[in-house]
Design a protein around this nucleic acid. Structure first.
Lengths: 337, 337
DNA sequence: CTTCATTGGTAAAGCGCTTAAATGGAGTAT
DNA sequence: ATACTCCATTTAAGCGCTTTACCAATGAAG
């Protein structure tokens, strides 16, 4: 509640000097600095954010934009947020999670009012209207994920191609040839998520490379849908010996239902989930953890880079998921007979 | 990027008039208003947040404070956040998720710099240092959850007593008498979560009321720990016919392991999880969903109330979890013999 | 002893907006 | 006409901080 003016009076210096010691903007004698610091302590001074933002034209706030209702920020989203918030803090910024619909109004408000210095955009779709809005604004931004044409934007993305390749290669090395792929269901509303599309393509490519027939499956993104899918597989007598799952929330359901329907995992069937969050996951499920925290850190680095050094080349980085952890992975079963 | 001054010039009015139409602060002729609005549209005017905050002494920003690393904001936390963000928007505020350690510095920074008008605090512990910090500040705040002595603070909380009572009553009505209680493990670091403590007490009371011996179990908050606990129950030949679980993240593991170990759910054993988020949960698990979104809305209402009408009595509200949904609930098995 | 950097510090002009108080013009009443 | 009231609009004083000149003092160089 104390103002800089009051600190200045108490320390017997001008308000400018106080500003210099607060910000370290200009050299100040040790002796004066000490007086000022004492005064600040005595009065419990804290710089008024709005005032300083107005004067500097900078807020040192970064927004992490995430689609308000559509996504639920669980799993890897949280890792991401945490990593991003920490890095922001390290670099002198505050990161706030900003729930925004795809709606033009909210993004415009965010960028036009000067409330934030930069934006990190999550859950980027191949054709994302929010990116166009950001492009139209003067606010620096970075994407987590990529649009169809990612040139001209700063982005950080999971290397789904490499990860799916890695997953398939490992399964093949374990003797699997009947490797099915489980993805999410397009929701019809929004343009597909870039990662999903790229992972899908990578699976097809890997199948071609290894010479096995692709088996594409899809289900909605929840445990119940995963269970139904697993049921269907069992009922239909699927001969797949391995499942690569790119559907974070369905994976536990799939595994649970398979176990319940009498499949021994991984002796009968291997299940490998890709892009799932690390952390408190069920260890029974093998997953290649998405590099959530690292993604967050790099995303924040990317925006700050845009803010502070607009002339540098655009940061564009790919990070693969980590190696598999968990128990649902094993050698292909010997063919019966 | 356009300033109010520019709008004023273009509309041929004074800057004050522009302010009046932007904020609806004072009556303005339809004709002038039209001119001003046209000018705003032409120039793409948006009010500069910092400037207006400085002049008004209000930011219209609310912080939702959540413990940065300890909690993971999954499950019900997300519901909560979404509900809160929407209500804030309805009432003309922006809600941002603010990751803060329990650390005095971050909370002080938040309140002292005037960056936010109010704070909603999540995951309140029985003895919570953050509450003391907020009390010491002049920033209005509301708690989600309660401290040991909740008088003198505005709060909204899940009615764990009522919910546990309800759960036990339902199980008793289904014929269960051997009803065990699974809670989280105290982590040693922080003071216990108020809800956990109150739910625990309510279970003991319900057991006494119904005249059965309480069976207390605990495990860490992840699927793996849930699995271990379930294993232990099976190995030890527990005769419990029902489990009341107040451990959101362990519950799926418990259920999965029981099924895997050959228990038929709910024929052999009923499992009822309390306070779990609604939404994409596994339908196989019966749960009494926590009123996340409603809690969020009321929490926001409570702070705004403190901000705008500091003289009103402190809002203090309890909301029970909803009725059970999901399949792991059934009548008690007939005793063998 | 002048000249000129250098250095620590101050004065003051904003940043873009809000708002209390002042202005001036139209309308009513006297 | 004069006085008075209303009402839409303007004037101008901040809000608390940053930052560019500018100044005075000190010391080194000539």
């Amino acid at each position: 509640m104390a103002t800089m003016q009051q600190v200045a009076e108490r320390a017997g210096v001008s308000i400018a000097t106080v500003s210099f010691v607060v910000n370290g903007t200009k050299h100040v004698t040790d002796e004066t600095r000490a007086r000022v610091e004492a005064a600040m302590r005595d009065l419990g001074y804290a710089r008024h954010h709005a005032a300083s933002a107005l004067a500097r034209g900078r807020t040192n706030i970064l927004a992490l934009l995430y689609p308000a209702l559509e996504s639920d920020l669980s799993g890897s989203g949280v890792q991401f947020f945490t990593g991003a918030a920490e890095r922001a803090r390290e670099r002198g910024y505050t990161l706030v999670l900003w729930p925004a619909r795809n709606d033009a109004g909210e993004i415009a408000e965010l960028t036009a009012t000067g409330l934030v210095d930069g934006v990190v955009l999550m859950e980027v779709q191949l054709d994302d209207p929010r990116v166009d809005l950001l492009r139209a604004s003067t606010t620096p931004f970075a994407l987590i994920g990529r649009t169809a044409d990612p040139s001209g934007t700063a982005w950080v993305d999971i290397d789904f191609e490499a990860t799916v390749d890695d997953a398939v290669d490992r399964l093949v090395a374990l003797g699997h040839r009947a490797i099915a792929y489980v993805e999410g269901e397009p929701d019809g509303r929004s343009s597909p998520h870039g990662g999903a599309a790229r992972a899908h393509a990578a699976y097809l490519a890997a199948a071609a490379r290894h010479g096995f027939a692709p088996r594409l499956l899809a289900c909605a993104g929840d445990a119940g849908a995963g269970r139904s899918l697993a049921s269907r597989l069992v009922d239909e007598g699927s001969d797949a010996t391995a499942l690569v799952v790119v559907n974070e929330h369905a994976a536990p359901g799939i595994l649970a239902e398979l176990a319940q329907r009498g499949r021994t995992i991984p002796a009968d069937l291997s299940v490998l989930s890709i892009g799932t969050s690390p952390g408190a996951a069920d260890p029974a499920l093998a997953r290649m953890p998405s590099p959530g925290a690292e993604l967050g850190r790099l995303g924040v680095d990317a925006v700050i880079d845009r803010i502070e050094n607009p002339d540098r080349p655009l940061p564009q980085t790919l990070i693969p998921c980590g190696p598999p952890e968990g128990d649902s992975l094993g050698p292909a079963p010997r063919p019966a007979g």
